[in-house]
Amino acid sequence: MRSSQRLLVALACAEDDWPHEGWPAPDDPYVGRVVRVAPPYDTLHEGEPDVVVLRCAEPATSFPGLLAALGGRGVPVIVVSPRTDTETVVGVFRGGAGYLAEGDYCTHMLSSAVMAATVGHTYLSPSACAALREGARRMPAAGDAIERLRALLSPRERQVMELLSTGLGAQEIGLRLRLSEKTVRNNLSNIYAKIDARGSTEAVLRWLGATPAAPVLRT
């Protein structure tokens, strides 16, 4: 992330035009500039964007193509799509991207999602969260394993994880729990260490029982 400037976003539209022509607003606190890139996204290396926003009708095909174009560069991705089925949302989330379902977010939420992505948070709109939870519910029963994992956490850490799994970022979690954003981030760091998660995506998947990986308690 640029330390003294607002963020540069690459807007990748796989099929349709972008619906938010006025975004970002001149006074947007996070996003300063947007550049358009079209499939096959060969120009993504130009300008080194902070975040890529992919708008597409079929993430199952467009998202892997975008990842291939990024070539392993660690640029955060947010997918914007009308699809809200469980398989699509879970597939994108497992790929490490945020997910905003069309009609389920506003441009303020979009800017917040962009900012959150730069600090490692995977942002989900409400219907995307519901799809992720439904995907976890369909997984083979692993109640004992989930309870053992959750027992590793303090009551406050469990509160933080429950809110994180609904798509809230550190700032929003802090407002809900009346904690500073720094305190929430410290809690998240402790949580990741306790359940052996590399970031928010993996932590949420384990919290919901949507990954078979066994937790490891680090001392």
Rank of each mutant, 00 (worst) to 15 (best):
M1W: 09
R2K: 12
R2A: 12
R6V: 06
R6F: 06
L8R: 15
L8A: 14
V9H: 05
A12E: 01
A12H: 04
C13G: 10
E15R: 14
D16Q: 15
D17M: 12
H20L: 12
E21M: 12
G22T: 11
A25E: 08
D27H: 13
V31A: 12
R33G: 08
V37T: 15
P39S: 08
P39N: 02
D42F: 12
D42P: 03
T43W: 06
L44G: 03
H45R: 14
E48H: 10
E48K: 13
V51S: 04
V51F: 09
R55P: 02
E58P: 03
P59R: 07
T61H: 11
P64Y: 11
G65I: 05
L70M: 07
G71N: 07
G71Q: 07
G71M: 09
R73T: 07
G74K: 15
G74N: 14
P76C: 01
P82S: 02
R83H: 07
T84C: 08
D85Q: 12
T86S: 07
T86H: 03
E87I: 13
T88N: 05
T88R: 05
V89C: 04
G91E: 00
G96W: 01
Y99R: 03
Y99V: 07
A101E: 03
G103N: 02
G103Q: 01
D104I: 09
D104R: 06
D104Y: 05
H108Y: 12
M109A: 14
M109V: 11
L110C: 03
S112K: 15
V114H: 11
M115F: 14
T118M: 12
V119H: 13
V119Q: 11
H121D: 12
T122M: 13
Y123I: 04
S125M: 03
S127I: 12
C129N: 08
L132A: 01
R133T: 08
R133I: 08
R137F: 14
R138I: 06
P140D: 02
A142L: 11
G143H: 10
D144C: 03
A145M: 10
R148N: 09
R150V: 06
P155A: 02
R156I: 01
Q159Y: 05
V160A: 09
M161D: 00
M161G: 00
T166L: 15
G167R: 04
L168I: 09
L168M: 14
G169Y: 05
G169F: 06
G169T: 06
E172M: 12
G174K: 10
R176D: 00
R178K: 15
S180F: 01
E181T: 15
T183I: 01
V184T: 10
R185G: 02
R185F: 05
N190V: 08
D196H: 05
A197V: 01
G199V: 00
T201S: 11
L205C: 10
L208C: 02
L208S: 02
A210W: 04
P212N: 05
A214S: 10
V216A: 04
V216G: 00
